[in-house]
């Protein structure tokens, strides 16, 4: 599995990553000028909170959010193992928010959905990695021997 890794030596907490994540991934319009005016406000998937350590979903080997989800909306991509929210069925019960050890699942009551990073699994590069001006964010293979576990349906249901 490839995950986003952070080099805190390089991160200056400039917020370029969460800003563009909000625009490109979180917003409806995908256009900077209109995204900043949207209500509800777009929710970025990366959290720049301190210690020069932007945090994304870590795609835990055994993900407590997948265990906790009462209707299978939190699930893994069967090809890559990346954890994502199947938004149409999410009922905003915040069970995943309650168990995420990194606090990186955002409860958006306005959008009525749990919002988290899926490492831009449908894109070649995550947007945050692409825009980081100091290259503090990189996509790298997880260490050898690591696995992933949990619900990974082959198709939507």
């Amino acid at each position: 599995m490839k995950v986003i890794k952070v080099d805190p030596e390089k991160c200056t907490q400039c917020h370029t990553c969460d800003f563009w994540c909000g625009v490109e991934i979180g917003s409806v319009s995908k256009e900077l000028n209109s995204a900043i005016l949207e209500t509800p406000q777009p929710v970025p998937r990366v959290h720049v909170d301190g210690n020069s350590y932007p945090l994304h979903c870590r795609h835990c080997e055994i993900a407590p959010c997948v265990d906790a989800c009462p209707n299978g909306s939190m699930r893994r991509d069967p090809q890559t193992g990346l954890v994502y929210v199947h938004e149409p069925s999410c009922i905003a019960c915040w069970m995943c928010v309650m168990v995420c050890p990194f606090g990186v699942i955002a409860p958006s009551s306005e959008m009525h959905v749990a919002v988290k990073c899926d490492r831009c699994r449908h894109m070649e590069y995550p947007i945050c990695v692409e825009v980081c001006p100091t290259r503090a964010l990189v996509v790298e293979d997880r260490e050898e021997g690591s696995a992933w576990y949990g619900f990974a349906p082959n198709r939507d249901f």
Partner: peptide, 12 residues
Amino acid sequence: VQKAGVLTMLMR
């Protein structure tokens, strides 16, 4: 309730 899971982690 945002980031409640961080507390869960500390408890665990």
